[in-house]
Every structure is written in structure tokens, then in C-alpha cells.
Amino acid sequence: MNLKNITIAGSGVLGFQIAMQAAFHGFQVIVYDINDEVLEKAKSKFKTLSESYTTDLKASPEQLENTFNHLSYTSDLALAVKDADLLIEAVPENPQIKIDFYKKLAAVAPEKTIFATNSSTLLPSQFAEATGRPEKFLALHFANEIWKHNTAEIMGHSGTDQKVFDTVVQFAKAIGMVTLPLHKEQPGYILNSLLVPLLSAATDLLVNDIADVETIDKTWMVATGAPTGPFGILDVVGITTAYNINKIAADATGDPLKIKTVKFLKENYIDQNKLGVSTGQGFYSYPDPEYLKKYFLK
């Protein structure tokens, strides 16, 4: 495997986690985002994340110092990919934003650079043409809290070169992931093919006034033994992601329930900046959400 220099495009919920994980395992990582203000916010998130690495991975101060020495930041895309062996795209889950980004990227990236999308629900074939290098393009999808929930789903499209696919599998192993190669394209990969129906069903129950957030989560947690219910999961994933997924479905199908869900999420959460764990408020309040309290399951 010849990958040394990794560029992460997007410093949002998963972008900064992927960057930290790769830097922690010794790769040179450049974090790219649209402006310096966004990148400054990302830097503070890395400091918070280092506490999780200390607690969960027993990372030493020396390891963390080395990690931060492997991280750099820029809002200049050409500079961000100048030496990139692999670029992982973690920009918003919106097809047009991704297409626009890949067209800009294709104009400045060196020929050697492999492009990977971390999209949760969209297929690599939707963007392959826009990349200008379809044979060097595939999906590399991580779960949230990547350092603990260390899954990496690798999914090519019909034009992905097998050597490129194998190289990305090796990279995922090198940053401590359990690699999960898919044989062909599947909307939602494996994880979200299982998870999204659960989250959608929970949201439907809430929007249709069947039950409240706490009762729905309690039902799932007590009946299955899961440590978190669907709304606790949505707070970690980020309510913006849920909103975008529902909006895409609503626009594509005109489903009245999806339209109702989009309106509900926008008015009650997006417009009020209640975006989940990242803003300290979503379906629950953080850092001490109700579902973690002893009495919650009584």
C-alpha cells in the first residue's frame, strides 16, 4: 500500500473523526473545508475528541501529540490535494453539493489521487462521471464514533478498478477498521440498509403522534437490550443528516408522510439549531441525556 498523504474534505460530524483516526495511525492528514472559520471550529473538536481517545483507546499524551503533529488544515482545495494519495469526501449529503465538489476537485487533484466518498445513502455511480476518474473512485463509509464503532464499508461501482478497491481496503485496516467489502452497489450499504428503516419508523411514529421520543426509545431499549434508542442514535448521527435524507425522499416521491417529516424536523430542530450532540441539544439535551439516566428504563 503506497498511501501516505490523506486529505479529508469536510470537517463535520464524521469528517473530523476520520481525520483524527487516520492521523492517530500515523498518516499525514490535511483537513479541507470551505473557510478558515469552519476549520477553527474543527480544531476545537479535535481537542474534545482527544479526551475520547484517552478514555476509550487509552491513548497516551505522546500518541495524541504525535496525532496532532500529523494534522494540518486549509481552505485552499488545490493546496489540500497537492500531494494527496487518497481524498475522502465528507461534504453534506446533498447530490448537487457533492457533484459540484467533485468537478472542482477533478480540476486540481494529481492523477495519482484516489477519491472516496463517505456518503451514507448515495451511490458512487451517481458521482463517478463528475470525478473525471471513475476507475479511481469508490465509497468508503464509516460509522459514527469511528474510534469505537470501527466499521469501514468499502463499496465500488461497476467502473472501479479492483486494485484501487483492494488498496482502500488495506488503508481501512491500517487505521484500525474492521473492513466490510461489498460485492456490488447497494443504497445504504450494509449498516444503513439495517439502520435507516429503524430510524424512519421511529420518526414516523413521532410525526404521526403515536408516541413521544422517550417512549419510543424506551420501547426499543427495553425490548432489545440496545444501549440507545433510535432518537438517541439520531442525535449522534446529526439531525441535519436525517433531514437531508428525508428531503431527498420527499422531493423524489412526493410521499405526504416524508413531506410532513421534513416540515417537522425543519421547524422543531433545524431552524432552532437543535442538531443533536454537536450543538448540545437535539431530541435530548447533552452532555447528560435522559436516556442514560438510571430511571429512564423503569
Rank of each mutant, 00 (worst) to 15 (best):
1 M>E: 10
1 M>I: 12
3 L>K: 12
5 N>D: 06
6 I>P: 00
15 G>V: 07
15 G>R: 08
15 G>F: 01
17 Q>I: 03
19 A>M: 09
20 M>A: 14
24 F>Y: 15
40 E>H: 14
41 K>P: 01
41 K>W: 06
41 K>R: 15
42 A>Y: 06
46 F>K: 01
47 K>T: 12
49 L>H: 07
50 S>E: 11
51 E>M: 10
52 S>V: 08
54 T>K: 15
55 T>Q: 07
56 D>W: 08
57 L>M: 11
58 K>E: 04
58 K>Q: 12
59 A>Q: 10
59 A>N: 08
63 Q>P: 01
64 L>Y: 03
65 E>M: 00
66 N>M: 11
67 T>K: 09
69 N>L: 14
81 V>Q: 04
86 L>E: 07
91 V>D: 00
91 V>M: 04
93 E>T: 05
98 K>V: 07
103 K>T: 08
103 K>N: 04
104 K>P: 00
107 A>M: 09
107 A>C: 04
107 A>W: 02
109 A>L: 13
111 E>K: 14
111 E>F: 03
115 F>K: 05
115 F>L: 09
118 N>T: 02
125 S>K: 12
126 Q>K: 01
126 Q>T: 08
127 F>E: 01
131 T>G: 00
132 G>I: 10
137 F>C: 04
138 L>S: 09
138 L>N: 12
139 A>C: 14
141 H>Y: 00
144 N>Q: 09
145 E>Y: 12
148 K>A: 07
150 N>F: 07
158 S>Q: 13
159 G>N: 12
161 D>M: 08
163 K>D: 15
164 V>W: 06
164 V>I: 13
166 D>W: 08
168 V>E: 06
169 V>P: 01
183 H>T: 11
189 Y>N: 14
191 L>T: 07
192 N>S: 09
193 S>Q: 07
195 L>N: 06
200 S>P: 06
200 S>T: 15
203 T>C: 03
204 D>H: 15
205 L>F: 08
208 N>G: 02
209 D>V: 02
212 D>Q: 11
217 D>E: 02
219 T>D: 00
222 V>H: 09
230 P>T: 11
231 F>A: 06
234 L>V: 13
237 V>I: 10
238 G>F: 02
240 T>G: 11
242 A>S: 08
244 N>W: 10
244 N>S: 12
247 K>I: 07
251 D>W: 03
255 D>M: 03
257 L>Q: 07
257 L>W: 01
262 V>P: 00
263 K>R: 13
264 F>I: 03
265 L>C: 01
269 Y>N: 05
270 I>G: 05
273 N>D: 07
275 L>R: 05
277 V>Q: 13
279 T>K: 03
279 T>P: 09
280 G>E: 06
286 Y>R: 06
289 P>Q: 05
289 P>T: 02
292 L>S: 14
293 K>T: 08
296 F>W: 10
298 K>L: 04
